[in-house]
Design a protein around this nucleic acid. Structure first.
Lengths: 224, 224, 224, 224
DNA sequence: GATGAATGAGGCTTCATTCAT
DNA sequence: CATGAATGAAGCCTCATTCAT
């Protein structure tokens, strides 16, 4: 339990030999392969039902190799969550930045979330919003951290918006509550229409637009 | 799997003897005792970590007895979810009805959700929003059904609102999307502030008010 | 890990029904069956090499049943050690008592050890002197406790001897050191001739007599 | 299993080049480093709990290197035992020789054992008396061989003593039995006071003296 | 109806050993 | 020679479920 697992990005800055570099690259590839297999498997079978043997098979490595790269099953899930959280934050933050934290940013972020993230990474959705829920305390703590970061990003954008538009929100908590609300909306919409809907022919575009309109109106109503 | 489990409300309408009535009542009490124990245990330990033996201990019955009242562990969870869903729907529906499906209803429903349901039944929250997620397909199907009912209630209220106020929502899906949004908001607020917050001294009242304002604004913005 | 395992001798003193008594007896029998199987298996295969499945097979129960009676493999070993230690102490103590703590007691105890215990319970020897050595800290602690008890018995007998004979030992530690020595002698003789089973058909009787003579002389030499 | 491992003392007697000599020396150093690491690790963690990876880390080499010098884990333990046995025999034999196989030799050997060997090499004690017990048949066979050698040394000294002093022991086995007894005494004293006693402030000198007095008396009593 | 001992499949994890680089 | 990533068999243990009493 105390054994330190391989880090794919060692801090050492000494020059590496050619073969060492190749090794390093191979390690990172292997790490990713396993993580990707886990994402697919956990999303498809469920975290609990998925066994480490299935995972190893899917990643085309031996069980031992999985344990060479990850401390245990839980560690695998946590790393997966972190990766997904990171991906998602980057994607949304990008849009906020591009539109200079105007109301337009919320529109674009919403659009990106639905039309890009949800459509292209339904498995990531399952992991973050479903499979990682209700697991061990450690996983739950990570989940909390990731959601907090996402919510803080949105909150920060709201505060910029408040500042830029020269308005004041209803209460000191408003920005945070709104951020939580927005997060929850997207989460449930994704769950409802992407995870639960077998029929993906839904009019995602309209849904997204309505949601965005809802948000815009919601925000507007908390400015006094 | 083939064994038919006792129903606490048998369809037979023939008059029952005194002792039969007592038996019947005892059965129902026992059933409830177990269900309550399950709620507490699943919320505290997590559905998977909780064992049937722990559950039996907590309910002060034997494992065999648990299996007399419930087909299996999954069945226990499903019944629990149904009960919680039923409780929640009633509570919210009541408020909508009382305020005659006016905008005021959304305010009151929100208030009730936070100040009554969340505060008094944090364990129900955990079961519905966390522990029941990412389990077997059957559980997931039930979860979907329950959420759908809740969302439909909200949607119905929105449609009544639309009708009463003589407005038109942006799109034919708007009512549903808004319902989903509202559901998601409440879900995440509850998760964020009730399940994750060790410190429950949060200003729940303000949070609730901000959330309601958000909703009201959101709805308003989807009327054209 | 925290689960309390069945106790074969519950402290409750309320009268038990006939069937409850039978159940109780069956439990104790089962417990003993498993413990006996463990003794044989651990002695034959070695504690580490012996698997829980082998053990279950030998005891003609399922693995689950073993875990119903014993917390884990370690717990099994510890209970086994305790039982053996208890058996051995009783046997030796009996002899000391019978001969009223005279020098004769040491003669008889030695004789009993070799001709009775060692000959009839070679497996117990293996467990106590070989298999239980070098295992987990918990096992080691138990081993220490058991040996300490045995040594204390011998020490007590020596002190009685000192008193009865009106002599004084060389140093205040002498009694204890002698006890440790005697224990060690018997241990190694048993190991050497019983566990390692020299193909030489050893004359256990002579060996025992020589050992006893050694002890008698040793004790005598520490009296001043 | 089929691979022949390096011997640190190759039989070839042809003159070696300078660099070959250096190589040779380095090899021997490496061999010793690993063996020393094993001694420390096995004594501290226990033979079974210690993994080859931990060992490699401690010896600051790679696992592969360990396998270059030792056939397998068992081989490592056996070599360690041999080394310790060799060390111990030399130390004791030296004293017997020095005192010309008189009774004084037993006194000095005992003294040396406690005050030198036990105090300075507690890890060796653990390996020989604890960790190597109850392992594979091969290890057990080696243990037997080592103990037999030690016992034979003592037996030989006893026979010399018998001869020199012109006495006759009680039985033809007496010398051997006494040797076994002495070995056992020292073994258990070491275990009791060195391995088990966290508090090493024991009066080792007195213990040693008492033990020696016990031996002397014991021997005396078997002479007729 | 209630009990609780028994079951056994299945899961996670460890670790000695190998071998291509 | 040295390295360390990869292997996979094997072990311990859990726990939902059953059924004789």
């Amino acid at each position: 339990m105390k054994k330190e697992k391989v880090k794919t990005e060692p801090a050492t800055s000494e020059p590496l030999s050619k073969s060492a570099i190749r090794r390093q690259r191979e390690r990172e590839q292997r790490y990713q392969t396993i993580l990707n297999a886990a994402e697919t498997l956990f999303a498809r079978e469920g975290y609990h039902k998925a066994s480490m043997e299935q995972l190893a098979d899917m990643a085309e490595v031996s069980v031992g190799t999985v344990y060479f790269y990850f401390k245990n099953k839980e560690d695998l899930l946590i790393n997966l969550m972190d990766e997904i959280g990171f991906k998602l934050r980057n994607m949304l933050g990008e849009e906020f930045k591009k539109s200079d934290f105007s109301m337009e940013g919320f529109r674009r972020a919403g659009q990106i979330f639905f039309e890009d993230f949800c459509s292209n990474h339904p498995e990531s959705l399952s992991i973050l919003f479903r499979e990682s829920a209700g697991q061990s305390p450690l996983v739950e703590a990570h989940r909390k951290k990731i959601f907090n970061k996402l919510i803080n990003d949105v909150k920060a954008a709201l505060l910029r918006l408040e500042e830029n538009n020269g308005v004041r929100f209803q209460s000191p908590l408003s920005a945070e509550v709104m951020a939580v609300c927005i997060m929850g909306m997207y989460e449930r919409i994704a769950y409802q229409y992407l995870i639960w809907q077998d029929d993906r022919s839904m009019d995602l575009k309209t849904i997204g637009e309505d949601a965005v309109a809802f948000i815009v109106g919601g925000i507007g109503n908390l400015c006094r």
